[in-house]
């Protein structure tokens, strides 16, 4: 038998079983995947904020945290930690992407940009404790988009944002929804 013939048979076999495989693959709903990813992100983010910034910067005053952490020989801010992680993920995979956004962003690039981002951030702000899910098309691709509330988990979150010269809002307190984590999963595979 020629190599070509073997290839044809293998390919034919794969095609024949494709619907079956697809059914098996549909086991995970994009919403569940997004929820799982967010659970990890949110935990890491909370732990960095509480155990590094709130503890070592605000309470013990052992280190500084600064947006210009390299020049200032300081720890990166929690929002930067989160963004660096998301940028590194984007370097590794395009199976999902995520970002931290807010209706009151210090860095104006983090304001919601797509219609769904705007709708989602407004929703989680109006409905504390609830998440927002939807589908949108960007650059010709369809995405499952989830928006999760990002809450001020420690005193430093509120104080730093209230005091920053570029902040559009100065009355944040612990427990407030300050922004949202947007997770996107492409639907076209």
């Amino acid at each position: 038998m020629t190599v070509k013939a073997i290839k044809a048979i293998v390919l034919g076999g794969m095609l024949a079983t494709a619907p079956l495989a697809a059914t098996a693959d549909e086991g995970l709903d994009p919403k569940d995947v997004a929820d799982m990813l967010h659970a990890v992100m949110d935990s890491d983010r909370t732990i960095y904020t509480k155990m590094i910034v709130q503890r070592l910067v605000a309470k013990e005053k052992l280190i500084k945290a600064s947006e210009f952490f390299e020049d200032d020989k300081a720890a990166p801010l929690p929002a930067q930690m989160f963004r660096f992680g998301s940028e590194m993920v984007a370097d590794k995979t395009d199976l999902f992407s995520y970002s931290l956004q807010s209706l009151w962003p210090i860095n104006k690039q983090n304001a919601p940009r797509t219609d769904m981002e705007k709708e989602g951030l407004q929703y989680i702000s109006d409905n504390p404790g609830e998440n927002f899910y939807g589908e949108e098309e960007l650059g010709g691709e369809s995405y499952f988009t989830a928006v999760y509330p990002d809450v001020a988990v420690a005193e430093v979150c509120a104080t730093c944002h209230n005091d920053h010269k570029d902040t559009p809002r100065t009355d944040f307190k612990v427990g407030d929804v300050m922004g949202g984590v947007v997770i996107r999963i492409p639907l076209d595979g």
């Binding site: 992407s97 650059g139 996107r184």
Partner: peptide, 20 residues
């Protein structure tokens, strides 16, 4: 140069309109 516009900042699909 601590590039102010590194590629990694533009990968996110939310930047599709910017990239256009």
């Amino acid at each position: 140069s601590n590039d102010s516009h590194p590629v990694k900042k533009f990968r996110d699909p939310r930047n599709a309109d910017v990239r256009a």
